[in-house]
Design a protein around this nucleic acid. Structure first.
Length: 226
DNA sequence: CATAGGATTTGCT
DNA sequence: GCAAATCCTATGC
């Protein structure tokens, strides 16, 4: 996929399906973040699906609350939350009609605006012990290799919750040309249990709702063979 | 109203 | 491999 690829918005119908199907199909799609200082594009390489109240690993397990209300609402919107008091994570609302759910963007590969990503990381005070990310270690393949790193790279925080990713301006999600998408997805898709949801109990913690491009260098962490 | 713990990342041991 | 950083949410009294 080129750095200046032409993107088509995905129709609402794409997102209005069971969230695990949407999660698998979002691999190879591209996030675009426009800001006054420049544009960053990032190829989605890893996702996780989260369901409604029935999914004990999902934020929606407590039903509709002030925080999780977006998961019950219009598809194709952003749902951004704060974890561990310091990290933001980006989701795309996706669910069957009348249901609830979202897809967490767990890892991406910066395609354009890599310098801007590097600048954001070097100036970041996020992370343990108030330390600063080391620029020397920032290779593009690892710059957004985790859900919180995706938000750092794209400069996304909770103010983006509710933003329309289909026709958005500052942040949007689109499909690259068919040939490029086919090339990227040619590696194949691997699945595995979602990360960090042991509290949900065996049935939901073991559900294979984590998806990744096989062998991609920007994955947040390895998948077990599948 | 008080409190436990989290869809994480980092640097040190 | 471990624990810190840090704050919001959900839950329980």
């Amino acid at each position: 996929v080129s750095a200046t690829t032409r993107l088509e918005p995905l129709p609402a119908a794409f997102y209005e399906r069971p969230q695990h199907e949407v999660a698998a199909d979002l691999l190879g799609m591209v996030l675009v973040r426009d800001s006054p200082v420049g544009t960053v594009e990032a190829l989605i390489v890893e996702t996780e699906a989260y369901g409604g109240p029935e999914d004990l690993a999902s934020h929606a397990r407590a039903g509709k609350t002030a925080r999780t209300e977006p998961m019950f609402g219009a598809v194709g919107r952003a749902y951004v939350y704060l974890v561990y008091g310091m990290h933001h994570c980006l989701n795309v609302v996706a669910h069957a009609h009348g249901a609830a759910g979202a897809v967490l963007i767990r890892a991406a590969l910066p395609l354009a605006g890599v310098d801007l990503v590097a600048a954001r990381r070097s100036g970041s005070r996020r992370g343990a012990r108030g330390t600063t990310a080391r620029l020397t270690r920032l290779v593009p393949e690892r710059a957004a290799a985790g859900p919180a790193l995706v938000c750092q790279a794209l400069d996304v925080d909770r103010s983006f919750t509710g933003a329309d990713l289909i026709r958005g301006e500052a942040l949007r999600l689109g499909r690259p040309p068919a040939a490029e998408l086919a090339m990227v997805r040619g590696a194949g898709v691997v699945t595995g249990p979602r990360v960090g949801v042991d509290y949900a109990g065996d049935e939901w913690a073991s559900r294979p709702w984590r998806f990744g491009l096989r062998g991609h260098p920007a994955l947040s962490r390895p998948f077990r063979a599948s």
